[in-house]
């Protein structure tokens, strides 16, 4: 299951860090971030039911690891 989310982030380096951070979050199989189109593609693990819960975790991790003002729009 692959989904696209709009994001808000200020610099390409931060976008790269978001990609790494999101990819490490449990429930995420693969994450790609495109800074220029401000989009994040998340491929969820097969057995994950609650995508929103995973995305909340992804956002929390990104804020902690990358920058306090990053945003992911998933609701």
């Amino acid at each position: 299951m692959k989904k696209m989310f709009k994001i808000a982030v200020d610099c390409p380096v931060c976008a790269g860090k978001m990609e790494v951070t999101a990819g490490k979050t449990p429930g995420v199989k693969e994450a790609t971030v495109n800074f220029l189109s401000l989009k994040m593609w998340i491929e969820f693990e097969e057995n994950v039911e609650d995508h929103i819960a995973v995305m909340k975790e992804v956002l929390a991790n990104c804020r902690k690891e990358v920058d306090d003002d990053v945003e992911i729009f998933f609701e």
Binding site: M4, G16, E19, T32, V33, N34, S37, K39, W41
Partner: peptide, 19 residues
Amino acid sequence: LELVENSSAHKARSEKFIS
């Protein structure tokens, strides 16, 4: 659209060099 935008997996050598 996805093909054009979601191309991070295919980063160019010069892009990798710069990062």
